[in-house]
Simulated scan of single mutants.
Amino acid sequence: MDASDDDDEVPQLSAHTLAALQVFYTEQEQRESQKAGPGYDRFAVGAVEEDWQLSQFWYSDETALSLAKEAIEASGRNGRIACVSAPSVYQKLKGLVGDDVTVYLLEYDRRFSVYGNDFVFYDYNNPLDLPDRLQQHSFDIVLADPPYLSEECLRKTTQTIQFLSKEKILLCTGAVMEDLVTQILGLKLCKFIPKHNRSLANEFRCFANYEIGLDAAS
């Protein structure tokens, strides 16, 4: 078989596919160059890209900021805030709080380890496998967004929430989970509706065990 026959059997990409790949690589190069630039904000929502295989869907800037402000208000003076699987809220919090407020991010994705001591590796399958610095009932508010819309994930994440929380809990998850959220955590549906950067198939809602300020503004 000669070289021309070999070439005939090599799969050829269509012009449309090649153009799409070029756009992808160009955007990737732009993102990498921005990370190296002086204006790069490592705490900006989207600074770490979503990984859909990890069921990651970042909130919109407006929603992340609203939830961050709610957490600050709920935590009070010298507050302690735990963000469980909610990195975009954590990112907004870091732009708002001073040294008097403590914020931790519990997250499975180790890319967020760039946030240093604030980052705690968290696997909901081992809900109480937590470092000593996260003491029981030591957080004024726990804001959580379980990564999967399943009873198993909710029940295991609940163990983490109940271990960390002094009292206040704010949870964001799919509206389809309402009955389970009420049954397992005793939370009530809020008026505030969280939005994401991308359209999701499932409607998302907030649930809490206290009267959130965001509802008063709705």
Rank of each mutant, 00 (worst) to 15 (best):
N117I: 11
N117M: 11
D118E: 14
D118T: 05
D118W: 01
D118I: 00
D118R: 01
F119I: 01
V120N: 09
V120F: 06
V120A: 01
V120R: 02
V120H: 05
F121P: 12
F121D: 10
F121N: 00
F121I: 06
F121T: 08
Y122M: 01
D123N: 15
D123M: 00
D123W: 03
Y124M: 08
Y124E: 10
Y124F: 15
Y124A: 14
N125S: 14
N125Y: 12
N125W: 08
N125R: 10
N126F: 13
N126G: 08
P127I: 06
P127M: 00
P127G: 09
P127R: 02
P127V: 02
P127F: 01
P127H: 07
L128R: 10
L128T: 13
L128D: 15
L128Q: 09
D129K: 06
L130K: 02
L130F: 04
L130Y: 06
L130A: 12
P131M: 06
P131I: 04
P131S: 09
D132H: 11
D132V: 12
D132E: 14
D132M: 07
R133I: 08
L134N: 08
L134A: 06
L134E: 04
L134Y: 05
L134D: 07
L134P: 02
L134F: 09
Q135E: 15
Q135H: 05
Q136V: 13
Q136Y: 10
Q136W: 06
Q136F: 11
H137E: 15
H137R: 15
H137I: 00
H137N: 15
H137K: 14
H137P: 04
H137Y: 09
H137G: 13
S138A: 15
S138N: 14
S138E: 11
S138P: 07
F139P: 08
F139D: 07
D140P: 08
D140F: 01
I141W: 06
V142T: 08
V142K: 04
L143G: 00
L143V: 14
L143F: 13
L143E: 05
A144T: 12
A144F: 05
D145V: 02
D145N: 09
P146R: 03
P146N: 03
P147D: 12
P147G: 06
P147K: 04
Y148Q: 11
Y148A: 12
Y148N: 13
L149Q: 13
L149E: 14
L149T: 09
L149M: 14
L149V: 04
S150L: 05
S150C: 00
E151L: 01
E151S: 00
E152Q: 12
E152A: 11
E152T: 11
C153S: 02
C153W: 01
L154H: 02
L154Q: 05
L154G: 09
R155E: 15
R155Y: 02
R155A: 12
R155H: 02
K156V: 03
K156N: 11
K156Q: 14
